[in-house]
């Protein structure tokens, strides 16, 4: 009985995270400036990583944790590159 509740709560958490991801995507599309979009992309990475952890708990697989680790690291590299680009792009213009 209590395990049905656990399952339901994990699904609820996943729905919340999906909503969070859709909010990040909305902010990314809406902007208004380039730095807002990059910030939203970074938040999207983190939400996706947390969502992967919940999927891992539901499917009893540690593989998702490793996928989350990789998303975290690649997201960091991507955001740093984009932030650097924002500083440089203006100089060249």
């Amino acid at each position: 009985m209590s395990h049905d509740v656990l399952e339901a709560i994990i699904i609820l958490a996943q729905l919340l995270l999906l909503l969070a991801m859709s909010f990040s995507i909305t902010r990314m599309l809406r902007g208004p400036r380039a730095q807002d979009r990059v910030l939203a992309l970074d938040a999207l990475y983190v939400n996706a990583m947390i969502l992967l952890l919940t999927i891992g708990i539901r499917s009893d697989s540690l593989l998702y944790v490793e996928a989350g680790l990789i998303i975290g690291l690649l997201g960091f590299a991507g955001t740093v590159a984009l932030a650097k680009f924002l500083m440089r792009g203006q100089v060249i213009e």
């Binding site: 995270l17 969070a20 909010f23 939400n47 947390i50």
Partner: peptide
């Protein structure tokens, strides 16, 4: 999930 949601 709640904290991540509020952040977004």
């Amino acid at each position: 999930a709640l904290f991540a949601f509020i952040g977004s």
